[in-house]
Design a protein around this nucleic acid. Structure first.
Lengths: 365, 365
DNA sequence: TACTTCTTTTGGATCGTTCAAGAGGGGCGA
DNA sequence: TCGCCCCTCTTGAACGATCCAAAAGAAGTA
């Protein structure tokens, strides 16, 4: 077992003091070029790595970011969080941070978890996935000046949230989100472009912010080209069977739609079932279905089944979360990720990023 | 902002010394009942929480466990790791540990990650998911006496691995796994019980340990009742289209199988496609398919589509991983999880746990 | 009373790092 | 020449916990 390498070991070898080594690491400009080089050489020769615990004790910063891991959701959308987590971990590593997990069964439990994590591990920041109306968690964190970013808009004021970053309204906290309305609009527009005129929508029951936002993308797009969406949408809880039932209902109308846009892949899978013949299922089939179907989230199932779906840039969203946090934590030293639509804080508001999803076109539509 | 609560704050309030407070926390038996109570009262009144960084600096233990988060796999099986992670985090919290994530693109990168994590954060242990033949990572960790558990058997010697814990062969390191062969055997046996005699198998190409293990469950079960499995299995890389192709090939045989067991839900989904009529897809349908199909992993897709599938007890597996680590780290203070088949170390080997999966029967078979 | 033994408490040292303050040397203007 | 500043580097102290050695107190024994 090799001797433990500390800053003192490095200092001895480079024939300087501990503080100089520390300066090379944290404030290189204060050290003369020649000395800096000598210290760097010693560091890599000895394989020195700064001990985070000791650093944390002095600075109060742990370089740790916490994110909640939720129990797998019902339905097909299980792997979304998974992909986000992976992106988050990767981006955090690049920025010199690590990701720590915690669980909680509800908002109250999540706040307890914050308390415990902050007390024991001095966490630097939190990433919240999914935001609620009038969120108790964001209030708690804000009150205590704990840095955090949400993946999901603060939906407190629907009218404001709807417009999102497009008008750069001051935000109560930094957030990153994917523009669901835009994704659904892309899907709808493409169907219009390929000649469809009666385009239906199967989404979640009214009242869910994310669901209403996605529906608005379909609604507004139809209206913008002078088509009447009335009677062409159905609301159903997320799920295969619910999607199928909604689609059957929609198709039983006097003038059934020739295409259906869905708020999730789970619903879309059910809709496809209601709509398609057996031969169409094959991934390799180039046979067009009778009714075009579009999903949302581009889950592995959509990929397997050949379902056209709206794909969220999860890795990019995760990278943005880390960027925003790094801005707060490191004092704006890092630039934003490339290609993001970023609204910088204005009038006391916080940074907000709204990403555009992309449409992955497959055989289903 | 409240004053920071340290062990000294608690000591002052309870009118004892710091050491006495520390003893109450780490060696309560050394402190007189009355004093102990007074200190406990002060701790909860002040909301004191031990600072892990300071504790770690003195003791060298961080109470942190690391696990790799992999990029989402191809195919339907995305949420398996997700569920395992959730269970791991929950079990770790209960045992007083936290879970930290890291990424790596290959074995070499993973070893670099170990090095970095150990150097910077003094990690207590690692959980490896998925094991390879002749794994470089386990060798590295063993060499440096870093505690770890693998979720997945060490497959170094196929003959030995096949028998698993059933014979309690000394293991090179602690591991937890799910008995895939047993899961497939359960599925096969159930098909036999419901009258099937020609039962096929669609699995991965030979050479993958997990795949061969699952195939053996089907093979051995047929043989045990005097049936000949010859010609009734097909090998295909994981995926929907591959499963469909394999099934078509199988069904084109002179005496096609009346039921097909699959090594994954992805394959099963493709097999179902090759096998079923359109009406059978509905989750609510009670129409029996022409050919019974069984998957593996009980993914959300299987749940949505009504596919009979073998379900891995992932939460339990995660809890076992934590138990085994706690045994090593805390010196065997904790008992094993209830209801596990546990082989305790014998003759210098390490603890190993082989869990039984369960069959979730749905409409598909 | 003095000595021993056992329990409980105390003060000081320590882990590895960064902060605050200061020392030493050279350049520059008065 | 002196004083001042700047640049570079060094020294001592601190963060908050635990470990260690030893003191204080209680109780038993000669």
């Amino acid at each position: 077992m090799a001797e433990k390498v500390t800053i003192a070991t490095v200092a001895r070898r480079a024939r300087v003091s501990r503080q100089t080594v520390s300066n090379v690491l944290n404030a290189p400009h204060m050290v003369r070029e020649e000395t800096r080089e000598r210290v760097r050489e010693a560091i890599s020769a000895l394989g020195y790595r700064a001990n985070q615990a000791a650093r944390q004790m002095r600075t109060g910063r742990s370089r740790l970011i916490a994110v909640r891991i939720e129990p797998t959701r019902d339905g097909v959308n299980g792997s979304v969080l998974d992909r986000f987590l992976h992106g988050l971990t990767e981006a955090a590593e690049a920025a010199g941070y690590r990701v720590m997990l915690y669980t909680a069964s509800d908002s109250r439990g999540e706040i307890d978890a914050y308390d415990s994590l902050l007390g024991a591990y001095d966490l630097d920041a939190f990433v919240l996935t999914g935001t609620e109306h009038d969120d108790a968690r964001t209030a708690w964190l804000t009150e205590r000046d704990v840095p955090f970013v949400t993946f999901g808009r603060p939906w407190d004021d629907p009218a404001r949230a709807r417009s999102g970053a497009r008008t750069a309204v001051p935000s109560p906290h930094p957030w990153v989100d994917v523009d669901g309305a835009d994704g659904v609009a892309q899907a709808t527009r493409r169907l219009l472009d390929t000649g469809h005129r009666r385009i239906g929508f199967v989404g979640w029951p009214h009242g869910s912010e994310v669901g209403d936002d996605r529906r608005s993308g379909w609604f507004d797009t139809l209206r913008s080209v002078g088509l009447d969406p009335t009677g062409l949408d159905r609301a159903a809880p997320d799920g295969f069977a619910q999607g199928e039932a909604a689609a059957r209902d929609l198709l039983a109308a006097a003038e059934p739609p020739t295409a259906i846009v869905c708020a999730s892949d789970s619903l879309a899978l059910g809709v496809l079932q209601a709509v398609r013949g057996p031969g169409d299922w094959a991934a390799g089939s180039d046979q067009r279905p009778r009714v075009a179907v579009t999903g949302f989230d581009d889950t592995p199932v959509a990929q397997a089944i050949g379902l056209t779906s709206v794909s969220q840039p999860l890795a990019q969203a995760a990278a943005c979360c880390v960027d925003l946090l790094a801005d707060v934590l490191d004092g704006g030293l890092r630039g934003g990720a490339a290609g993001t639509r970023r609204s910088d804080p204005a009038g006391g508001g916080h940074a907000q990023v709204l990403l555009r999803p992309s449409l992955v076109v497959r055989q289903s539509g």
